[in-house]
Amino acid sequence: MFDYLTYVREGNFPHIWCSGCGHGIVLKSFIRAIDKLGIHRDEAVMVSGIGCSSRTAGYVDINTLHTTHGRAIAFATGVKFANPKLHVIVVTGDGDATAIGGNHYIHAARRNIDLTVLIYNNYIYGMTGGQVSPTTPRGARASTSPFGNIEPPFNISGLASAAGASFVARGDVYHAQKLEKLITQAIQKKGFSVVEVLSPCPTAYGRRNRMASPVTLMEWLRDNCIPVKKYEKMSEEERSGKIRTGVLIDIEKPEFTEEYRKLVDSMQVRG
């Protein structure tokens, strides 16, 4: 048994997430990760925006900051800049991070500031009634695309890689032990680190897309999330409809707060 309760604000439970929502599994994976890393709650700050995913900050008993829609990364940048010793973790969703917060997302990646960003990707705006999001797959139904979405989706991980993030991974809530490892690696990494987590929304997405049952959504993740090494060995045909999971990018590059510190130090030497 893992003692999750020492890391949560028990008075706020049961949480608001719907039956079968994967977000609780992400929270648990995060808790196990910080426990294994031995990070004291005073050394960690969780910053969230708006949406179902962002409610995570209300449940975990570390320093938390629940901010405005799309701006979690901007607030987190301020926190990290003020005290670079802190582990700053952003929890956000596909809508929060890649629609209204898309600009913050790509520019934080470009700067390579040492933040860990957990993006709960459920392909939909769950909290506000199932509107189409930037990651809703083509053909999928949402309340605002009742006949099927005609827009191609953003690739959240690809976006971070292209913008310059030093660590990018993708996990899912069915493979929860692997998810914990990816979150652990992301927290340890110095630089902008993203973990895109596929976390199903039975209520707003599943019901409209013939996957109303949480179990069906979990089976879908089990069958379609393929580890990077296995994916690389698959033919183009076999890859169709499959999702690559694991560490996608892990590179070394100068980190923003350290570069800033160096600049300040060089100015002080000059007097």
Binding site: M1, Y4, P14, H15, G20, H23, G24, K28
Partner: peptide, 16 residues
């Protein structure tokens, strides 16, 4: 095997 505890989204089941 603890898989129920691992995947419970509601923190509602524990195994010892």
């Amino acid at each position: 095997c603890m898989l129920c505890e691992l995947r419970c989204p509601d923190f509602a089941i524990t195994v010892e």
